[in-house]
Design a protein around this nucleic acid. Structure first.
Lengths: 211, 211
DNA sequence: ATAAAAATCCGGGAAAGCAGGTAGTTGAAA
DNA sequence: TTTCAACTACCTGCTTTCCCGGATTTTTAT
């Protein structure tokens, strides 16, 4: 196999993190930083006309959330490996990222060695975690075990409206839908979350950062 | 006045951030990084036998929280300026830091120029914020303005039950109350939160860490 | 092309929530 | 002591949610 440099991209809205990562990665000679981006949109743009082998993706971005962006990246370029990078250590976050096609997940307290090691593992297609993440995954907690329901775009949309306290009919009016349609989505949401009223629904959703 | 280099310390448990900050600060020639620390304890130790003019202090640390550490620092070395550095953009966080003696507050999305500017302002004793923080402080958003409603013990109790998805009558049974009483509490809760249904109530409550 | 998933729409009935009150009892602070 | 906040309880009328059950069309993935 030819040993070209690995093209790596970073998506993070914090300049500090961008610089920090670049510094940490200079020691790994075979990695080339193809680009740094502060928004998901900017990276997607770049990806359309450039090859990226691996991308370090912050979960919280100004424009889109990491989960959705991850999914978009994999759709656009299935061979690009995505490593989630975040301060969020909740199991649900990690699981969600993997569901959406990420190859691994790192917390921002990674060391330089961990970082480069994870990158290389990811390039081999291995699912890889930073040390702190492995510990979280190893000790599953009751509440987190149930996993995160996979919501459709419409469902997410309506979930947000519900959380804002809007009634079914108000939502329907705003989205030009029949109230009955909104009712159905609401019903499905509650089924997916395995709850039986909005109160519990919203609690779960907020706690899982879906709102 | 003699122009010695400014002795600056960084306390942050993320290597990435440490490196990133160092990189960003190299451009400011008059600043010398006296030390980097990943725990509050380590920095306090250092401070006992070294002069530090200014410290960039992450709010979330493994051993202590930033507020308390800030207070300790000012007690030990009142002339050391503390700049809070965090991802947390909640107004309450910022205010708390200032109460505890911080000279300023930065979000981690600061630019290099902002960073050095804030450092210099802080050295002059000026209270200083990064741009994003100034915006938060200038425009108290609706949700932040109302502050946290003062709930009675009973109300908090019932709020939790509601968030768990329990119905009014179930709560009443569990607390040996009339359902009507629970209804009243629920009504009062919604008044205090200025919302008109449970969905919004729970969202607000969770987001304000009351659940 | 075909299957699967998502999004849309519908009915009816039971249950709960919402909004607007009123009002007695208690316990602590002024 | 009286005054006030909290907790308790009640009423009426109306709206909305919740829970069954379906159905059709459009989009997406294989």
């Amino acid at each position: 196999m030819l040993e070209h440099k690995v093209k790596l991209a970073i998506v993070d809205d914090h300049l500090i993190v961008l610089e920090g990562l670049q510094k940490l990665l200079t020691s790994a000679g075979d990695i080339e930083i193809a680009g740094s981006f502060t928004t998901g949109a900017a990276f997607i743009d770049f990806l359309k006309s450039n090859t990226v082998h691996i991308v370090l993706l912050d979960i919280t971005l100004p424009d889109v959330n990491g989960m959705d962006l991850c999914r978009d990246i994999k759709k656009l370029s299935p061979d690009t490996h995505v490593l989630g990078l975040s301060n969020h250590s909740e199991r649900s976050m990690i699981v969600q990222m993997l569901h959406n096609g990420a190859t691994g997940y790192l917390l921002k307290n990674v060391s330089a060695e961990e970082l480069t090691q994870c990158i290389h593992e990811a390039l081999n297609g291995q699912v890889t975690f930073s040390k702190a993440v492995r510990e979280i995954m190893a000790r599953p907690s009751m509440t987190e075990l149930k996993g995160v329901p996979q919501l459709t775009k419409r469902e997410k949309e309506i979930l947000k409206f519900i959380a804002d306290g809007k009634t079914t009919s108000a939502i329907a009016a705003e989205l030009f839908l029949s109230p009955l349609t909104v009712e159905t989505h609401r019903k499905n949401l509650m089924q997916k979350f395995e709850v039986k009223n909005v109160a519990a629904l919203i609690k779960e959703a907020v706690q899982r950062h879906m709102i």
